[in-house]
Protein backbone atom coordinates (compact mmCIF):
# COMPACT_ATOMS: atom_id res chain seq x y z
CA UNK A 1 0.00 0.00 0.00
CA UNK A 2 1.21 3.43 -0.85
CA UNK A 3 2.12 5.73 2.01
CA UNK A 4 -0.46 8.38 2.86
CA UNK A 5 0.49 12.01 2.87
CA UNK A 6 -1.42 14.89 4.34
CA UNK A 7 -3.22 17.21 1.98
CA UNK A 8 -5.12 19.32 4.51
CA UNK A 9 -6.72 19.40 7.94
CA UNK A 10 -10.26 20.75 7.73
CA UNK A 11 -11.34 21.91 11.16
CA UNK A 12 -14.80 23.37 11.60
CA UNK A 13 -14.24 26.13 14.14
CA UNK A 14 -17.97 26.51 14.81
CA UNK A 15 -18.27 22.88 15.79
CA UNK A 16 -15.03 22.53 17.77
CA UNK A 17 -15.60 22.91 21.50
CA UNK A 18 -11.92 22.87 22.40
CA UNK A 19 -11.87 19.70 24.52
CA UNK A 20 -8.25 19.03 23.61
CA UNK A 21 -8.61 15.31 22.85
CA UNK A 22 -7.08 15.71 19.40
CA UNK A 23 -4.18 17.71 20.83
CA UNK A 24 -3.40 15.22 23.62
CA UNK A 25 -3.44 12.08 21.51
CA UNK A 26 -1.95 13.19 18.22
CA UNK A 27 1.09 10.90 17.96
CA UNK A 28 3.11 13.63 16.21
CA UNK A 29 1.88 16.65 18.17
CA UNK A 30 0.52 18.30 15.05
CA UNK A 31 -2.53 19.92 16.63
CA UNK A 32 -2.85 22.68 19.20
CA UNK A 33 -5.56 24.86 20.64
CA UNK A 34 -5.45 28.53 19.68
CA UNK A 35 -6.21 31.45 21.99
CA UNK A 36 -9.97 30.95 21.33
CA UNK A 37 -9.60 27.30 22.40
CA UNK A 38 -10.20 25.97 18.90
CA UNK A 39 -8.06 23.21 17.44
CA UNK A 40 -5.70 24.05 14.58
CA UNK A 41 -2.85 22.28 12.82
CA UNK A 42 0.24 23.96 14.25
CA UNK A 43 2.67 21.53 12.60
CA UNK A 44 0.95 20.06 9.55
CA UNK A 45 4.29 18.96 8.10
CA UNK A 46 4.59 16.34 10.86
CA UNK A 47 1.18 14.76 10.11
CA UNK A 48 1.30 11.08 9.15
CA UNK A 49 -2.39 10.93 8.16
CA UNK A 50 -3.35 8.41 10.84
CA UNK A 51 -6.74 10.15 11.30
CA UNK A 52 -6.92 9.38 15.01
CA UNK A 53 -7.88 13.01 15.63
CA UNK A 54 -10.71 12.73 13.14
CA UNK A 55 -11.95 9.47 14.60
CA UNK A 56 -11.86 10.62 18.21
CA UNK A 57 -13.05 14.20 17.78
CA UNK A 58 -16.35 14.26 19.70
CA UNK A 59 -17.49 17.36 17.85
CA UNK A 60 -17.16 15.81 14.38
CA UNK A 61 -15.23 18.91 13.47
CA UNK A 62 -12.03 17.42 12.02
CA UNK A 63 -11.59 15.99 8.55
CA UNK A 64 -8.11 14.90 7.52
CA UNK A 65 -7.66 14.98 3.79
CA UNK A 66 -4.88 12.73 2.54
CA UNK A 67 -3.40 11.62 -0.77
CA UNK A 68 -1.06 8.82 -1.67
CA UNK A 69 2.61 9.68 -1.63
CA UNK A 70 3.76 10.93 -5.00
CA UNK A 71 0.31 11.93 -6.19
CA UNK A 72 0.00 15.44 -7.56
CA UNK A 73 -2.66 17.60 -6.08
Amino acid sequence: MAKLKLKAHHIDRDWCKGCGICVRFCPKHVLQLDDREKAYAAHPEKCIGCRLCEMRCPDLSITVETEEEGEKS
Binding site: G20, M55, C57, P58, S61
Partner: peptide
Protein backbone atom coordinates in the same frame (compact mmCIF):
# COMPACT_ATOMS: atom_id res chain seq x y z
CA UNK B 1 -25.23 11.03 7.28
CA UNK B 2 -26.08 13.83 9.67
CA UNK B 3 -28.71 16.51 10.02
CA UNK B 4 -26.22 19.31 9.71
CA UNK B 5 -28.60 22.09 10.71
CA UNK B 6 -28.54 20.88 14.31
CA UNK B 7 -24.75 21.21 14.65
CA UNK B 8 -22.76 22.03 16.67
CA UNK B 9 -24.42 19.39 18.83
CA UNK B 10 -25.71 19.92 22.39
CA UNK B 11 -23.21 17.65 24.11
CA UNK B 12 -20.67 19.23 26.48
CA UNK B 13 -17.07 19.85 25.41
CA UNK B 14 -15.22 16.55 25.55
CA UNK B 15 -18.32 14.36 25.92
CA UNK B 16 -17.66 10.95 24.42
CA UNK B 17 -21.08 10.64 22.85
CA UNK B 18 -19.91 12.59 19.81
CA UNK B 19 -17.14 10.05 19.25
CA UNK B 20 -19.73 7.27 19.34
CA UNK B 21 -21.78 9.18 16.76
CA UNK B 22 -18.75 9.58 14.53
CA UNK B 23 -17.77 5.91 14.80
Amino acid sequence: YIRERFFPHIWCPGCGHGTVLKS
